[in-house]
Structure formats: C-alpha cells, structure tokens
C-alpha cells in the first residue's frame, strides 16, 4: 500500500483538549508521513485549529502523546497560522528578517528580495506588513513559513478569505512545496481545494476524526461522487 515505507514525521496518539466543559479535540490520532500533502478538513469549530496548535506545540494537550521525527521539531516545521499575524510597526521586509532571526537564519538583502519577488511582494517590501491585502498577507505568511527550508509545513486555512485567483495561487504554492520535497499539512473547509492538492484527507467533526484516507479511497468507500458530498455526509 502506498505510504508504508514513508518516514513518519509526526505521530500523535489519543490527543484530547477541552476548554471549560467543551471537549474540542476528542482522543484523536494524527500521523503525518514524509512527502504527503495531508488535508485536515471539517466545519468551523470541528477542532482543526486546536489540533494544529497541539501539533505545533503552542497549545498543550490535556492528554495524549505527540512524537516527532526529530527532537528539534520547531526548527524543522514551518507554520502559518489562521490569522496570519505579523508584528505591528514592522515592514514586510523587517517581518521577514525578524522571523528569519527566530529560526536562527540571517538573510542577505538579495536573498530577501528573491523570496519576496517569488511571491510577488517585492514592490511592497517597505510597506507595513499589517497594511497588506489579505492575499498579500497570506503569501507573506508562506514566505515566513518556508524561510528556514523546513521539512514539514503546517498551514491553518491558508486560502481562507481569498478570491478564487488567490486560492489557486495557494494551491500552486502547496504543490510547489511538495515538488521540492516538503511535507504539507493544511486545514481547510474548501473541498475543491482539497481535491486539487491533497494526497490524504482527514475529516474532522466535533473533535473526532471521522475519516482518514486518500480522496479516491474515501469516495469509493463511502460510495460518493465527490469530496463535498463526503464532507456533508460525515459532518451532518
């Protein structure tokens, strides 16, 4: 079966997280194998962002274990959060330099310009990052995510709020990342996007993983024509 020999990058077992009386992530298992594009899909409030937060180590789990392929996982994982936050008072260029510093990287002016140019942000490099359009912020967030050439990139709803052109750009970027050997985990509730890029889909609903497999295998198993139908079926 495809994937059997792929290296396991993250193996999370029985993750659980509650806020007050509400169980947001309910004893789920998550595994990410090298070279995959994994989509974590679900409705709003399904627990996707909390799951991603736990995998990144920024939200402590109430129970469960997470094993990484390396002890220095923060150096090897690139992160794009749902809100695409940037430091206020810093330009686009300075935000790139700052996050590079957080990863222990020093970039030359030419290197920064190259990265910005590759994502069509060179012309706004001196602009305050928080003043960029949403699409520009998403692209800047992906630059920040990939500054340190990570092995795994985790994107929380990377195309949320974007127009179709912007969404397509993000999909191209995700495929480009895979092409360069980067493993990607992204969350989404756009099933067309998932269909276009994901090797494997994990459907989450009310804190539980309802399904986990390749798009084709899931559609065959559930006898469903497309992933959108699957989404509705599993999240009703």
């Amino acid at each position: 079966m495809r994937g059997e020999n792929m290296k396991q990058l993250i193996s999370a077992c029985q993750l659980m997280k509650s806020y007050k009386t509400r169980c947001v992530v309910d004893h789920i298992d998550v595994d990410i194998k090298e070279g995959e594009i994994v989509a974590l899909v679900g409705t709003n409030g399904a627990g996707k962002t909390t799951t991603i937060g736990m995998l990144l180590g920024i939200i402590p789990q109430d129970s469960g274990t997470i094993e990484y392929w390396t002890s220095d996982y923060k150096k090897e994982i690139g992160t794009q959060l749902q809100s695409t936050p940037f430091f206020e008072g810093y330009s686009v260029e300075d935000n790139v330099k700052l996050f590079a510093a957080f990863y222990g990287i020093s970039l030359t002016k030419n290197e920064i310009d190259e990265k910005l140019a590759a994502f069509d942000l060179l012309q706004v490099k001196k602009a305050p990052a928080i003043k960029l359009s949403l699409g520009q912020q998403k692209r800047l967030a992906i630059i920040v995510t990939t500054l340190h050439n990570p092995k795994l990139v985790i994107l929380d709803e990377p195309s949320a709020g974007l127009d179709p052109r912007g969404q397509r750009e993000i999909q191209k970027i995700i495929k480009r990342l895979k092409g360069s050997g980067v493993t990607v985990l992204f969350s989404s509730h756009d099933m067309l996007e998932v269909m276009n890029v994901a090797d494997r889909v994990m459907v989450m609903h009310r804190g539980k993983i309802m399904a986990n497999g390749s798009p084709d295998s899931l559609m065959e198993y559930y006898q469903i024509q497309n992933l959108e139908e699957l989404f509705f079926e599993l999240t009703k």
Binding site: D72, K74, T79, Y103
Partner: peptide, 20 residues
C-alpha cells in the same frame, strides 16, 4: 501597550512555534 497589542494580534503564538 505594545506587548498587549502584539499578543492580541497573535504574533506571540507564532513566536511560540519557532525555536527562539
């Protein structure tokens, strides 16, 4: 005020995900 503003923006969450 600057520290509060940065936290509310969510950048400290992103900082937390880095090895810094």
């Amino acid at each position: 005020f600057i520290a509060l503003s940065q936290r509310k923006r969510g950048v400290y969450n992103l900082l937390h995900a880095t090895p810094m």
